[in-house]
Design a protein around this nucleic acid. Structure first.
Length: 312
DNA sequence: AAACAGGTGCTAA
DNA sequence: TTAGCACCTGTT
């Protein structure tokens, strides 16, 4: 059975931009089953598409009245038999995961002020985008899998790992396996997920987290430098993967991870289309956007990806 | 069919 | 410090 409730929030929220800006591989566009007429009764303005995914130990369905209309109401559906938590507690977790407490109006205004030309366009395009607070282990593993990989393949591997090693969390979804569980399955099972040369990296990460050699609680409060040092103990975790985890799991908004797309965007917009090194792109992002570099990076990424799908 | 995809580790200057 | 290359696997 599906239980539906609203999550209250101030300021704009954009589901599509939030889930398709490259920070997560877990959310699938999902059409509501017709038999859930309940949903229509509870929120008449709701469209019939949303996103299905997993937050912590619970599979959830999320949708807005209009997915691109930033002021719309936000709805959650979940199977209450899959959780012992009261629904108001679930609402708090969803709200935290989606960073509904970020003052997005101020963030966007500040970014537009820093660059009223390109960044302003990018912000208008991704208006209401939220940087999530994902689970650190799942985020770390996902971005190890993302190394020199494409999005459909990454998604496939993450789903395979969850289906084979995770546990059911309702709505047909599965939790992402803990490092302990991954370790117990071993390298052959990891390889079966088609992650190729990244399998030993994943195993190394699992091993170091389980042994305590890497402390995933540390980056929550440590200095940026110390946090990086901790995460980069893991084989396969370099500066880019590390910064992605710091941004998407620990909400360190002052980092500026540069992947090939952001590198492309930076050279295109800020260096007259001249090819520049990643490091230079990163420094320029940090210089321009300071403590909001993380949000700047996401608006840029979402903007350039969409532009390039049309023609870049 | 060669090149490329949300990089990193390794080696050589 | 920086540059160049291989790497699993799948897609174009």
């Amino acid at each position: 059975m599906l239980r539906v409730f609203e999550v209250s929030h101030d300021g704009p929220f954009n589901l599509k931009a939030t889930f398709e800006c490259g920070q997560t591989f877990r959310w699938k566009r999902s059409r509501f089953p017709q038999e859930q007429g309940l949903v229509q009764d509870l929120c008449e303005e709701a469209e019939h598409t949303g996103y299905k995914g997993v937050i912590g130990p619970l599979g959830v369905l999320l949708w807005c009245g209009n997915e691109t209309e930033s002021s719309s109401r936000l709805w959650v559906g979940c199977d209450p038999s899959e959780t012992s938590e009261p629904l108001d507690r679930v609402e708090k977790r969803v709200s935290h995961y989606l960073s509904l407490d970020d003052d997005i109006e101020s963030i966007e205004a500040e970014l537009c002020r820093k660059d009223p030309v390109v960044m302003k366009e990018a912000v208008e395009f991704g208006h209401g985008l939220r940087i999530l607070r994902q689970d650190p282990w799942e985020c770390l593993a996902s971005f190890i899998i993302s190394i020199h990989n494409n999005i459909p393949a990454i998604t496939r591997t993450v789903e395979y790992l969850s289906r084979t090693m995770g546990t059911p969390v309702g709505l047909g979804e599965y939790s992402f396996p803990s490092p302990e569980v991954m370790l117990s399955y071993g390298i052959e099972c990891l390889k079966a997920s088609k992650c190729g040369f990244r399998a030993p990296y994943l195993l190394d990460a699992a091993r170091k987290v389980v042994s305590g050699e890497v402390d995933l609680l540390l980056p929550k409060h440590a200095s940026l430098e110390r946090a990086r040092q901790e995460l980069m103990k893991i084989k396969g975790v370099g500066p880019k993967v590390c910064d992605c985890v710091l941004l998407f799991a620990y909400h360190r908004l002052e980092v500026f991870p540069v992947d090939t797309w952001v590198a492309k965007a930076m050279s295109y917009f800020y260096f007259a289309r001249k090819n520049i090194s990643r490091e230079k792109a990163r420094q320029e992002g940090l210089r321009r956007f300071g403590d909001l570099a993380g949000y700047a990076q996401e608006y840029l990424y979402y903007y350039i990806r969409t532009l390039s799908r049309k023609k870049f």
